[in-house]
Nucleic acid binder design. Structure first.
Length: 272
DNA sequence: CTAGGTGCCTGATTGC
DNA sequence: TGCAATCAGGCACCTA
């Protein structure tokens, strides 16, 4: 499933591929993929607008358009964004197709139909609830510490909370906790200073490494970049979907449990 | 604030 | 072998 590194890769691809492009028409094959506005408003309002730039905030792809207005796309579980020629065969899972005036199209496909598209003039309406970016220069260790210090809950659900920190999903949360040597059920406000520092460093290095590898593509969660290519970060996953296999550090079998309703992988020896 | 549950969805996996 | 039930999971939304 696309998390921060996959969305970052996608946004960089789209910045290179569609910056400056102009929308010609929009076709919705699954109108509920459009969270806002009403379908007719998008179909009438988008043609003629240009893509000024593409960026990422949390797990949202953000296209800043002329006007100005903003097209925000959240891929959720199974969403894809690809740029292709309008003569290519269309994916059977295409939910929204943005035809460009240059003969290409931006296709949002999404087998599970969980992804959502927003078109609005005030992006903070959607993005305003997000916490800080984990990789931002101004997210200091001290800021991170203050986020956790006042929280009573377990680390795993907290790190998945986008209002606390924006961009972590199930894969990189498990990987970061493993690298930091912290149990997913540890209470956030119980961390020693050194443990907080380890977690802070682990989150940032896990995410940066995944970006460097253009994201994680698993066998069934078929993440692809804007040109249809998989990422190659899979070999860097040490616990996620490794249940029963020996821990890379100590050899103890990796366990899988459910925390907060989500599959959680950890080493019972290295993570207390 | 925290914890737990449900609904949204369908391809893949599991169970009998 | 084949079909039905279950699972996976990000997020909104609900209740306690």
């Amino acid at each position: 499933m696309p998390e921060l590194p996959e969305v970052e890769t996608l946004a960089r691809d789209l910045q290179r591929l569609v910056r400056g492009a102009e929308f010609e028409a929009v076709t919705l094959y699954w109108p509920r993929s459009l969270a806002m506005p009403a379908p007719d408003e998008l179909k009438q309002g988008l043609p003629g607008r240009h893509v000024l730039d593409v960026s990422r905030r949390g797990k949202f792809v953000q296209l800043r358009l002329s006007g100005p207005s903003y097209l925000l796309i959240h891929l959720r579980m199974s969403g894809h964004l690809q740029v292709e020629s309008n003569t290519d065969p269309l994916s059977p899972y295409a939910r929204a197709v943005f035809a460009l005036t240059d003969g290409r199209r931006l296709v949002f496909s999404d087998p599970r139909k969980f992804g959502r598209i927003y078109w609005l003039t005030q992006p903070d309406l959607v993005l305003g609830a997000l916490g800080p970016e984990p990789l931002a220069d101004d997210l200091s260790l001290e800021t991170f510490r203050s986020l956790l210090a006042v929280r009573k809950g377990a680390l795993k659900p907290l790190l998945l909370n986008q209002a606390l920190l924006a961009g972590l999903g199930n894969i990189y949360t498990d990987e970061a906790l493993y690298r930091a040597g912290l149990h997913p059920l540890r209470k956030a406000n119980s961390l020693a200073a050194e443990e907080t520092a380890r977690l802070y460093a682990a989150i940032r290095s896990v995410l940066q490494q995944a970006i460097d590898n253009r994201g994680t593509t698993l066998a069934d969660a078929r993440y692809r970049d804007a040109e249809g290519q998989p990422g190659h970060n899979r070999d860097n996953l040490l616990v996620y979907r490794h249940a029963g296999e020996p821990c890379a550090r100590c050899g103890t079998p990796i366990e899988r449990t459910v925390v907060g309703g989500r599959g959680t992988h950890f080493c019972p020896h290295c993570q207390r």
